[in-house]
């Protein structure tokens, strides 16, 4: 479903702030894979996700989604294939627009937006109400409220719902629970798991929580200095503990895992 082939990205080349963020990263996902990504500070986890999303173009290598070469496609055109949830709950929704308007925007992801068709129909409103109800946050009764009035957790849950409203080829989750309190984070993670399972999604989730990385998904990938250094499959993953992960990382990278936000849980 996703083929990341030897991608290289250097930010600010030729200056004192030069930073090699990706140095030949390679990753291949099968349909239905739910991969969690962990790694130290500046390992290139978020950069990898942003490279797939098209936030910037890569210097070398190629990215294929479901057989389509998207390496040179701009961000807005890659959106056709992708559902995205960001670390900052403010990023995924339009604060000045209503809940239902945000959902209507997400429903039309990758489709032609006509200046002659109404932006939201009463038929879809009914569907959105049902979808919101499954969040259990009471948002189904506030569909015409501005998203800016919601809490961070509510906004993140809504963003997640929007990302899967129209089934994406690939769901990108960039530390999407990092800005939430532990209780809300757990709720959003459960929702993530349910949505991925129910819609048979392929997903890539960056996390700084080792326990979450073990608990969710069927594969764990570790990154270090812009490369994928460890790739653990389903069979091995179910037997791993946090200590095993740490040992594995230190063994392969020859360095201790330094992530100042890392939760060993």
């Amino acid at each position: 479903m996703l083929d990341i082939n030897q991608i290289v990205k250097t930010f600010n080349p030729g200056t004192i702030t030069e930073k090699v963020a990706l140095s030949g990263a390679d990753l291949h996902l099968q349909e239905g894979d739910f991969v969690t990504i962990i790694g130290g500070n500046g390992a290139g986890k978020s950069t990898l996700l942003n490279a797939v999303a098209g936030v910037f173009s890569v210097d070398r290598g190629s990215i294929m989604i479901d057989g389509n070469d998207v390496t040179n496609l701009p961000e807005y055109r890659r959106a056709t294939f992708l559902g995205r949830v960001f670390q900052d709950p403010m990023t995924g929704t339009a604060a000045t627009m209503t809940i239902e308007e945000n959902m209507a925007l997400a429903m039309r992801r990758g489709e032609h937006r006509s200046p002659f068709r109404w932006g939201i129909s009463s038929k879809e409103k009914k569907m959105y109400r049902d979808e919101l109800a499954r969040l259990g946050l009471g948002l189904e009764d506030r569909m015409s409220a501005r998203v800016g009035l919601l809490s961070g957790g509510q906004r993140q849950a809504l963003t997640l719902l929007m990302a899967t409203l129209k089934k994406p080829k690939l769901l990108l989750l960039d530390e999407h629970t990092a800005a939430l309190d532990p209780k809300t984070a757990a709720k959003v993670l459960h929702l993530t798991r349910d949505l991925v399972r129910d819609h048979h999604l392929t997903a890539l989730m960056v996390t700084h929580n080792m326990k979450d990385a073990l608990q969710y998904g069927n594969r764990i990938v570790m990154m270090h200095e812009g490369k994928v250094i460890v790739d653990v499959n389903r069979e091995t993953k179910s037997m791993l503990r946090v200590e095993d992960l740490l040992a594995m990382f230190e063994h392969t990278s020859g360095a201790a895992l330094d992530n100042d936000r890392m939760l060993l849980g």
């Binding site: 959106a79 929704t93 604060a95 997400a106 939201i120």
Partner: peptide, 19 residues
């Protein structure tokens, strides 16, 4: 028109929705 309003409200969100 909704896509334009989203563009003004949040460019990142708009692009992520294919605008």
């Amino acid at each position: 028109g909704c896509a334009l309003r989203a563009t003004g409200a949040n460019q990142n969100m708009a692009r992520a929705q294919g605008i």
